[in-house]
């Protein structure tokens, strides 16, 4: 308990006595608009390392960039064979997990930071996604499925660092994005510890007709239902009329 506290304290304070290097960063865009022809988006993240002194040469400098999508309560279903057919037999409410998680770094994260740093900053997917339920088959299945669908991803050499000063990376956001705030962290690491971090948000939002239809469906469901039926009726009648004219 005490040892853990001291370790945590040391890790938290580390940036203070290592504050010789700071991260300065920006995003190509901090707003993603979901329009009718939205097909995913690519966000460029770039920045530099600010120093008061000369570049230390005794250790390697690394940059880690993480993007975390909105978190939502997840339920996992498990199938088993019953009476000869495969059916869902078990539901497990897991807790809140991000809809999207991406880690990019200058080299594999495990080589950059020590496990205690990972646990504190929740950098790898294993730490970030429901780490308190680690070992539970349903939680492992959630990570496996989302990874297979490209929603949880890692790029071991995704960040480019130039002359230990300038860095850049690009994060590809998939087409099936959930609306909300995507927390973007840029972490500076040396000697297995985090020196400095910069955090910002990317707002993902539906716009235009997408926004209008979504709001109408949820806020005025009766109107939305009637409008859908009207549209269906007109389309059906219209097609019938057009074909009648063509056949004449």
């Amino acid at each position: 308990m005490m040892r853990g506290f001291v370790l945590a304290l040391a890790l938290t304070l580390a940036p203070l006595w290592l504050a010789a290097e700071e991260v300065v960063a920006d995003l190509s865009q901090n707003r993603v608009s979901i329009t009718a022809n939205f097909d995913g988006s690519e966000i460029l993240i770039f920045g530099a390392i600010k120093r008061e002194a000369a570049i230390p040469t005794d250790s390697d400098l690394d940059v880690i960039v993480t993007v975390t999508g909105p978190k939502k309560m997840e339920t996992i279903l498990r199938k088993a064979r019953r009476f000869g057919i495969w059916v869902n037999v078990e539901r497990e409410r897991l807790g809140h997990a991000p809809s999207f998680y991406s880690v990019a770094a200058t080299r594999p994260v495990e080589d950059i930071i020590i496990p205690a740093t990972d646990a504190l900053w929740k950098i790898t997917a294993d730490e970030q996604i429901l780490s308190e339920r680690r070992g539970l088959p349903a939680r492992e299945a959630l990570i496996r499925i989302r990874t297979a669908n490209g929603l949880y991803r890692r790029a071991n050499a995704g960040v480019e660092l130039n002359q230990n000063t300038l860095f850049n990376t690009s994060i590809a956001l998939p087409a099936n994005l959930v609306e909300g705030a995507y927390v973007t962290r840029i972490l500076l690491a040396r000697n297995g510890l985090i020196l400095d971090d910069y955090s910002t948000e990317i707002q993902v939002q539906k716009v235009g007709i997408e926004r209008w239809l979504y709001n109408l469906a949820h806020n005025n469901a009766l109107m939305y239902g009637l409008l859908s039926l009207l549209l269906a009726g007109i389309a059906g009648w219209g097609a019938s009329e057009i074909f009648r004219l063509i056949r004449r």
Binding site: L222, Y224, S228, A232, A235, G236
Partner: peptide, 21 residues
């Protein structure tokens, strides 16, 4: 359609429009 739109908000007008064209 009305029951689904009213209780579950699951009618996608854009999808329906493309399908019905």
């Amino acid at each position: 359609t009305m029951l689904h739109a009213y209780t579950n908000h699951t009618v996608d007008m854009m999808l329906a429009l493309i399908l019905l064209v």
